[in-house]
Design a protein around this nucleic acid. Structure first.
Lengths: 158, 158
DNA sequence: CGCTTCGCGCAAGAATCTTTCGTGATTTTG
DNA sequence: CAAAATCACGAAAGATTCTTGCGCGAAGCG
């Protein structure tokens, strides 16, 4: 199971390319990173099996699909014992509006990235689901106006 | 240029499958959605050209790559005129630590999703870059403890 | 020095992609 | 209502890509 230390410059190039275009063919990828196709594919497989590449996703255009509202919610709980945190974390997984969620430290306990079809759907979710969930103390929401940066890329050495 | 209204049940299935596995072969995809390969590929191409599929990304395991700190920053500016907002938005694109950024409404003006190698690197960024950038008024940070939900999927009808 | 280990790259077979084309169903039009 | 046009599906075939199995040369080690 290779870790960061086992990666050489070619592996980093592979990761960078696949982050930008996850559907690139292996021959295209191999020529970009400067080796032939077979060893390139072996490297990709190894990165996948090591869990360094967690998967591949198509990125969708939410507004074009009728999902016009993107918002973030900062949640504070009344009690932050381990059991309560796990309970709320589990609850977020049952809410389809929540795309991804983080447990955070600071003024709030959770940060939720939400996508909804319209403001009404989002407000219904906030009021009837989120704010009325057990143990929820505070809910602060930030509606997004527009996406300003969308790389989703992790910064790389060199 | 097809929009939401032009999508049928098969298109939605395609989007759902490609969201879960963006590298699925077209034959596999076609069998999953119940049509043969050629029309399936045509549908995918059309979704790409329409901008409904914005691209494909490999998801990387940041901690395994030595990026141990994921944090969110809420930024408030002194002045929120259009020019100032654009200037700050442009600045976020030059910071490699910032994975993606949103302009938001509410108490803050921007929300930044950041990934750094360690706390020191993140704090250096916050103090020397973010807080000292022109027009920045307030910076609130929330360090993530762990990822609680990671679908990244948009919710679908049915 | 010789052995082992490792990864690259060639080559070949298998799988996939992609185009072309004919067919049937639905819609539009006269 | 019928004829024409439009549309998308699916079969078939050629081009591309994937994937595996070796041989080779370069390091690392006893």
């Amino acid at each position: 199971m290779p870790l960061k230390a086992d990666l050489d410059a070619i592996d980093w190039k592979i990761l960078r390319e696949l982050q930008q275009d996850g559907r690139m063919t292996n021959v295209e990828l191999s020529s970009r990173v400067g080796i032939s196709a077979p060893p390139c594919l072996r490297r990709v497989r190894r990165l996948e099996e090591a869990g360094i590449i967690r998967g591949y996703r198509a990125l969708l255009n939410a507004p074009a699909l009728g999902m016009d509202v993107v918002a973030f919610c900062l949640i504070g709980l009344h009690h932050q014992a381990d059991a309560e945190l796990k309970t709320f974390a589990e609850r977020t997984r049952g809410w389809p509006i929540v795309r991804d969620a983080w447990m955070v430290s600071g003024e709030s306990d959770f940060l939720l990235h939400c996508v909804a079809s319209d403001l009404g759907a989002f407000q219904t979710f906030v009021i009837e689901e989120l704010a009325s969930a057990p143990n929820v103390d505070t809910v602060r929401t930030a509606l997004t106006i527009r996406r300003v940066k969308d790389e989703g890329l992790v910064a790389f050495p060199a």
